[in-house]
Computed example of a mutant assay.
Amino acid sequence: MKNLFSKKTAAILLITIIALVVVFKMYSEEKTVAKPVKKAYPPGVVFTFDDDYIDDWYNAEKLLHPLGWKATFFVCWYGSLSRDQKDKLHYLQDMGHDIAGHGYNHLNALKYSKEFGIEKYINDDIVPLKAAMKKDGFNIHSFAYPDGARDTDLDKELLNHFDIIRGTTYDEIPAAQQYCYYEGNRLVYGLGIDDDYKQFNIPYYKTLLDYAKAHDKIVIFYGHKTVENADEKLETPLYALEELCKYAKEKGLKFYTIDDLAKL
């Protein structure tokens, strides 16, 4: 009788263990299936330009259009633009480029908000910019900080007004340590390619493109005035821009805009 009881107990225990294993396996498989998979995207490059150098950007488009490039133009001082300049912005938009915001009066967001508060900064530099540009057919979705001046409080507020915002980063550091790659965040950082920046170095920029290609990254660059002969501050030489576009194309990198990143 005692042996019979032991056998029954052992059988019940075995069945229970098997049932628990099956349930655990099913639960584990369900969790594995339900786990979201990170979307892959082709490696590439984003070229961005700040301020109100519309005539120069228009000339750059004429030069680089055969390469199939794309860029994002962050516009400020919109109220001072001529009809011809606004028409050129529309032309750039029609060519597949992004027209974006850089502040109505190019205010230093960090300094202004520290002195007058974030709400006043938004009302003085963001709201009028979006309204004026929307009136002319530019429904802007992204923003770049003037002077790269930002903090987390500003980021939080501006992301209520834009899909994606761009800060800045500096220095010629190893490609793997750079911050100028898209990492799936709504805050991104660009590395300057104006020739007065200390990191201006075309071979170095190419190492970033190589790294992007090898590691499925998207490099983000920014400049200002695109000119044939860069002899002042905040100027991106056209020869450098053309060389980087050609190199990116040779490497099979995709040209993105900032708005493209927001859609990823």
Rank of each mutant, 00 (worst) to 15 (best):
L107V: 06
N108E: 04
A109M: 13
L110T: 10
L110I: 05
Y112W: 08
Y112S: 09
S113H: 09
S113K: 13
K114A: 13
K114R: 11
E115R: 11
E115H: 06
E115M: 02
E115Y: 05
F116P: 03
F116N: 14
G117T: 14
G117P: 04
I118G: 15
E119F: 08
K120H: 14
I122P: 07
I122F: 03
D124H: 12
D124N: 15
D125V: 03
D125C: 04
D125A: 11
I126E: 09
P128C: 04
K130N: 08
M133N: 03
K134D: 08
K135Y: 14
K135A: 11
G137R: 07
G137S: 11
F138T: 11
N139I: 14
N139V: 12
I140C: 01
H141F: 05
H141K: 12
F143M: 07
A144K: 11
Y145F: 13
G148Q: 14
G148W: 06
G148H: 04
A149F: 08
D151S: 05
D151G: 02
T152F: 07
T152K: 15
T152Y: 11
D153V: 12
D155L: 07
D155S: 07
L158S: 13
N160Q: 15
N160T: 09
N160S: 13
H161D: 06
F162M: 02
F162E: 00
I164C: 03
Y170D: 15
D171V: 08
Y179V: 03
Y181E: 08
Y182M: 12
Y182P: 10
G184N: 02
G184M: 01
N185Y: 12
R186Q: 13
V188H: 00
V188K: 00
V188N: 04
V188W: 05
Y189M: 10
Y189W: 06
G190I: 01
G190S: 02
L191G: 02
L191F: 07
G192L: 05
I193A: 04
D194E: 14
D194Y: 07
D194F: 07
D195R: 11
D196N: 10
Y197E: 00
Y197S: 06
Y197L: 12
Q199W: 01
Q199D: 05
F200L: 04
I202Y: 04
I202G: 01
P203H: 00
Y204A: 00
Y205C: 01
K206H: 00
T207E: 00
L208Y: 02
